[in-house]
Amino acid sequence: MEVLFFAALMAYFFAVILQIVGVAISREKMMRAARCVFAVALILHTAFTVWRGIAAARIPLANQFEFASGFAWAAAILGFVLFRKLRQEWLMTASMPVAFLVLSYAAFQPMEIKELMPALRSTWFALHIGAATFSYASFAIAGGLGVYYLVMLRKGHGEDDTRMRQTDYMTYRLICLGFLLLTVVILSGAIWAEQAWSTWWSWDPKETWALITWILYAIYLHQRMRMKWQGKRMALFAVIAVICVIFTFAGVNQLLPGLHSYAV
Protein backbone atom coordinates (compact mmCIF):
# COMPACT_ATOMS: atom_id res chain seq x y z
CA MET A 1 0.00 0.00 0.00
CA GLU A 2 3.05 2.28 -0.14
CA VAL A 3 1.76 3.10 -3.62
CA LEU A 4 -0.84 5.33 -1.95
CA PHE A 5 1.94 7.25 -0.25
CA PHE A 6 3.90 7.81 -3.45
CA ALA A 7 0.73 8.63 -5.40
CA ALA A 8 -0.09 11.27 -2.78
CA LEU A 9 3.45 12.61 -2.99
CA MET A 10 3.23 12.90 -6.78
CA ALA A 11 -0.17 14.56 -6.55
CA TYR A 12 1.15 17.10 -4.04
CA PHE A 13 4.05 17.77 -6.41
CA PHE A 14 1.75 18.45 -9.36
CA ALA A 15 -0.50 20.60 -7.20
CA VAL A 16 2.47 22.73 -6.14
CA ILE A 17 3.66 23.15 -9.75
CA LEU A 18 0.17 24.08 -10.97
CA GLN A 19 -0.33 26.52 -8.11
CA ILE A 20 3.03 28.27 -8.53
CA VAL A 21 2.64 28.56 -12.30
CA GLY A 22 -0.97 29.66 -11.82
CA VAL A 23 0.08 32.39 -9.37
CA ALA A 24 3.01 33.45 -11.58
CA ILE A 25 0.86 33.91 -14.68
CA SER A 26 -2.31 34.83 -12.73
CA ARG A 27 -4.46 32.03 -14.16
CA GLU A 28 -7.43 31.31 -11.93
CA LYS A 29 -8.25 28.11 -13.84
CA MET A 30 -4.80 26.72 -13.19
CA MET A 31 -5.06 27.51 -9.48
CA ARG A 32 -8.45 25.81 -9.39
CA ALA A 33 -6.90 22.75 -11.04
CA ALA A 34 -4.12 22.88 -8.43
CA ARG A 35 -6.70 22.81 -5.66
CA CYS A 36 -8.45 19.81 -7.25
CA VAL A 37 -5.14 17.91 -7.51
CA PHE A 38 -4.32 18.93 -3.95
CA ALA A 39 -7.69 17.56 -2.78
CA VAL A 40 -6.93 14.27 -4.55
CA ALA A 41 -3.50 14.19 -2.89
CA LEU A 42 -5.09 14.79 0.48
CA ILE A 43 -7.59 11.95 -0.07
CA LEU A 44 -4.76 9.57 -1.08
CA HIS A 45 -2.66 10.70 1.87
CA THR A 46 -5.59 10.20 4.25
CA ALA A 47 -6.23 6.73 2.81
CA PHE A 48 -2.55 5.83 3.28
CA THR A 49 -2.60 7.11 6.87
CA VAL A 50 -5.75 5.14 7.68
CA TRP A 51 -4.31 2.00 6.06
CA ARG A 52 -1.07 2.37 8.01
CA GLY A 53 -2.95 2.88 11.25
CA ILE A 54 -4.96 -0.30 10.63
CA ALA A 55 -1.86 -2.28 9.56
CA ALA A 56 0.11 -1.15 12.61
CA ALA A 57 -2.92 -1.40 14.93
CA ARG A 58 -2.08 1.97 16.47
CA ILE A 59 -2.00 5.69 15.67
CA PRO A 60 0.61 5.99 12.89
CA LEU A 61 2.81 8.63 14.55
CA ALA A 62 5.43 6.48 16.23
CA ASN A 63 8.61 7.19 14.25
CA GLN A 64 10.17 9.86 12.09
CA PHE A 65 8.49 8.65 8.89
CA GLU A 66 5.05 8.48 10.43
CA PHE A 67 5.44 11.78 12.23
CA ALA A 68 6.62 13.52 9.04
CA SER A 69 3.69 12.03 7.14
CA GLY A 70 1.32 13.21 9.89
CA PHE A 71 2.94 16.65 9.86
CA ALA A 72 2.42 16.93 6.06
CA TRP A 73 -1.17 15.71 6.43
CA ALA A 74 -1.87 18.27 9.15
CA ALA A 75 -0.41 21.03 6.93
CA ALA A 76 -2.59 19.94 4.02
CA ILE A 77 -5.73 19.74 6.18
CA LEU A 78 -5.03 23.09 7.81
CA GLY A 79 -4.36 24.75 4.44
CA PHE A 80 -7.53 23.30 2.99
CA VAL A 81 -9.75 24.21 5.94
CA LEU A 82 -8.43 27.78 6.00
CA PHE A 83 -8.96 28.12 2.27
CA ARG A 84 -12.51 26.79 2.54
CA LYS A 85 -13.21 29.32 5.29
CA LEU A 86 -11.47 32.41 3.92
CA ARG A 87 -11.30 31.74 0.16
CA GLN A 88 -7.87 33.35 -0.10
CA GLU A 89 -5.60 31.89 -2.79
CA TRP A 90 -2.36 32.77 -0.99
CA LEU A 91 -3.24 30.31 1.80
CA MET A 92 -2.95 27.46 -0.70
CA THR A 93 0.23 28.95 -2.18
CA ALA A 94 1.80 28.73 1.27
CA SER A 95 0.41 25.40 2.50
CA MET A 96 0.83 23.28 -0.65
CA PRO A 97 4.66 23.48 -0.73
CA VAL A 98 4.80 22.81 3.03
CA ALA A 99 2.78 19.58 2.66
CA PHE A 100 4.86 18.51 -0.34
CA LEU A 101 8.27 19.27 1.19
CA VAL A 102 7.50 17.59 4.52
CA LEU A 103 6.12 14.50 2.76
CA SER A 104 9.23 14.43 0.54
CA TYR A 105 11.33 14.37 3.71
CA ALA A 106 9.18 11.46 4.96
CA ALA A 107 9.93 9.56 1.73
CA PHE A 108 13.61 9.44 2.72
CA GLN A 109 12.88 7.89 6.12
CA PRO A 110 12.66 4.14 6.84
CA MET A 111 9.05 3.16 6.10
CA GLU A 112 8.70 -0.29 7.66
CA ILE A 113 6.03 -0.69 10.29
CA LYS A 114 7.53 -1.42 13.70
CA GLU A 115 5.88 -2.40 16.90
CA LEU A 116 5.26 0.44 19.31
CA MET A 117 8.07 0.74 21.83
CA PRO A 118 7.09 0.20 25.48
CA ALA A 119 7.86 3.86 26.26
CA LEU A 120 5.29 5.00 23.69
CA ARG A 121 2.46 2.78 24.90
CA SER A 122 0.53 5.46 26.73
CA THR A 123 -2.81 7.21 26.64
CA TRP A 124 -0.89 10.49 26.29
CA PHE A 125 0.63 9.39 22.99
CA ALA A 126 -2.27 10.55 20.78
CA LEU A 127 -2.64 13.97 22.43
CA HIS A 128 1.10 14.69 22.71
CA ILE A 129 2.12 13.66 19.19
CA GLY A 130 -1.16 14.65 17.52
CA ALA A 131 -0.91 18.19 18.92
CA ALA A 132 2.74 18.31 17.80
CA THR A 133 1.85 17.54 14.17
CA PHE A 134 -0.73 20.34 14.03
CA SER A 135 1.51 22.72 15.96
CA TYR A 136 4.41 22.19 13.57
CA ALA A 137 2.03 22.41 10.60
CA SER A 138 0.71 25.78 11.84
CA PHE A 139 4.23 27.13 12.28
CA ALA A 140 5.32 25.76 8.91
CA ILE A 141 2.40 27.34 7.04
CA ALA A 142 3.07 30.58 8.95
CA GLY A 143 6.68 30.32 7.71
CA GLY A 144 5.35 29.70 4.19
CA LEU A 145 3.16 32.79 4.46
CA GLY A 146 6.21 34.70 5.69
CA VAL A 147 8.09 33.67 2.54
CA TYR A 148 5.06 34.60 0.41
CA TYR A 149 4.89 38.01 2.12
CA LEU A 150 8.57 38.71 1.50
CA VAL A 151 8.32 37.61 -2.15
CA MET A 152 5.29 39.85 -2.68
CA LEU A 153 7.12 42.69 -1.01
CA ARG A 154 10.02 42.26 -3.43
CA LYS A 155 7.53 42.26 -6.28
CA GLY A 156 6.50 45.75 -5.28
CA HIS A 157 3.37 45.18 -3.15
CA GLY A 158 3.13 47.73 -0.36
CA GLU A 159 2.77 46.77 3.30
CA ASP A 160 -0.60 48.58 3.37
CA ASP A 161 -1.96 46.48 0.53
CA THR A 162 -5.10 44.60 1.73
CA ARG A 163 -3.76 41.21 0.71
CA MET A 164 -0.45 41.89 2.43
CA ARG A 165 -2.22 42.90 5.63
CA GLN A 166 -4.36 39.78 5.47
CA THR A 167 -1.27 37.61 4.90
CA ASP A 168 0.48 39.26 7.84
CA TYR A 169 -2.58 38.77 10.04
CA MET A 170 -3.02 35.12 9.03
CA THR A 171 0.67 34.45 9.79
CA TYR A 172 0.05 35.81 13.26
CA ARG A 173 -3.13 33.76 13.75
CA LEU A 174 -1.39 30.57 12.65
CA ILE A 175 1.43 31.26 15.07
CA CYS A 176 -1.16 31.77 17.84
CA LEU A 177 -2.66 28.37 17.01
CA GLY A 178 0.75 26.72 16.78
CA PHE A 179 1.82 28.28 20.07
CA LEU A 180 -1.29 27.08 21.87
CA LEU A 181 -0.79 23.56 20.50
CA LEU A 182 2.93 23.58 21.31
CA THR A 183 1.99 24.49 24.89
CA VAL A 184 -0.33 21.46 24.92
CA VAL A 185 2.56 19.36 23.55
CA ILE A 186 4.98 20.53 26.24
CA LEU A 187 2.52 20.22 29.13
CA SER A 188 1.11 16.84 28.07
CA GLY A 189 4.71 15.72 27.51
CA ALA A 190 5.58 16.74 31.08
CA ILE A 191 2.65 14.76 32.50
CA TRP A 192 3.57 11.77 30.32
CA ALA A 193 7.24 11.99 31.32
CA GLU A 194 6.24 11.91 34.98
CA GLN A 195 4.19 8.79 34.27
CA ALA A 196 6.92 7.08 32.26
CA TRP A 197 10.23 8.30 33.66
CA SER A 198 9.13 9.68 37.05
CA THR A 199 10.32 13.17 36.17
CA TRP A 200 8.37 16.11 34.73
CA TRP A 201 11.25 17.66 32.88
CA SER A 202 14.72 16.23 32.26
CA TRP A 203 16.29 18.79 29.86
CA ASP A 204 16.44 16.12 27.18
CA PRO A 205 17.48 17.72 23.82
CA LYS A 206 13.99 17.29 22.36
CA GLU A 207 12.40 18.92 25.42
CA THR A 208 14.99 21.69 25.42
CA TRP A 209 14.47 22.47 21.74
CA ALA A 210 10.69 22.41 22.14
CA LEU A 211 11.19 25.00 24.89
CA ILE A 212 13.53 27.06 22.68
CA THR A 213 10.87 27.01 19.93
CA TRP A 214 8.18 27.97 22.45
CA ILE A 215 10.22 30.90 23.77
CA LEU A 216 11.07 32.05 20.25
CA TYR A 217 7.39 32.23 19.33
CA ALA A 218 6.62 33.85 22.70
CA ILE A 219 9.06 36.60 21.70
CA TYR A 220 7.30 36.87 18.32
CA LEU A 221 3.91 37.26 20.02
CA HIS A 222 5.20 39.85 22.49
CA GLN A 223 6.82 41.88 19.75
CA ARG A 224 3.65 41.76 17.75
CA MET A 225 1.13 42.38 20.51
CA ARG A 226 2.98 44.91 22.62
CA MET A 227 5.54 46.51 20.32
CA LYS A 228 3.09 46.47 17.39
CA TRP A 229 5.70 45.00 15.07
CA GLN A 230 4.04 43.97 11.81
CA GLY A 231 4.77 43.38 8.17
CA LYS A 232 8.26 42.65 6.92
CA ARG A 233 9.95 42.21 10.30
CA MET A 234 7.34 39.72 11.49
CA ALA A 235 7.39 37.83 8.17
CA LEU A 236 11.16 37.50 8.50
CA PHE A 237 10.77 36.38 12.12
CA ALA A 238 8.21 33.72 11.10
CA VAL A 239 10.62 32.38 8.46
CA ILE A 240 13.60 32.27 10.85
CA ALA A 241 11.52 30.69 13.64
CA VAL A 242 10.39 27.90 11.35
CA ILE A 243 14.07 26.88 10.98
CA CYS A 244 14.02 26.25 14.73
CA VAL A 245 10.86 24.15 14.32
CA ILE A 246 12.55 22.10 11.58
CA PHE A 247 15.58 21.54 13.80
CA THR A 248 13.36 20.48 16.73
CA PHE A 249 11.47 18.13 14.43
CA ALA A 250 14.30 16.59 12.40
CA GLY A 251 17.69 17.91 13.51
CA VAL A 252 17.46 16.94 17.18
CA ASN A 253 16.63 13.32 16.33
CA GLN A 254 19.63 13.04 14.01
CA LEU A 255 22.22 15.10 15.88
CA LEU A 256 21.35 15.16 19.58
CA PRO A 257 20.53 11.72 20.95
CA GLY A 258 18.45 11.62 24.11
CA LEU A 259 15.35 10.14 25.70
CA HIS A 260 13.36 10.83 22.52
CA SER A 261 15.76 8.90 20.28
CA TYR A 262 13.12 6.29 19.47
CA ALA A 263 11.51 8.98 17.29
CA VAL A 264 14.18 8.33 14.61
Binding site: W203, T208, W209, L211, I215, L216, A218, I219, H222, V252
Partner: peptide, 17 residues
Protein backbone atom coordinates in the same frame (compact mmCIF):
# COMPACT_ATOMS: atom_id res chain seq x y z
CA UNK B 1 11.39 40.04 29.98
CA UNK B 2 12.59 39.68 26.39
CA UNK B 3 16.25 39.92 27.44
CA UNK B 4 15.64 37.14 29.98
CA UNK B 5 13.90 34.94 27.40
CA UNK B 6 16.78 35.41 24.96
CA UNK B 7 19.23 34.45 27.73
CA UNK B 8 17.17 31.33 28.52
CA UNK B 9 17.38 30.43 24.81
CA UNK B 10 21.18 30.93 24.85
CA UNK B 11 21.57 28.74 27.96
CA UNK B 12 19.25 26.06 26.58
CA UNK B 13 21.13 26.11 23.29
CA UNK B 14 24.43 25.54 25.10
CA UNK B 15 22.88 22.93 27.39
CA UNK B 16 21.54 20.91 24.49
CA UNK B 17 24.68 21.01 22.37
Amino acid sequence: GMILLVLVIVCSFAGSL
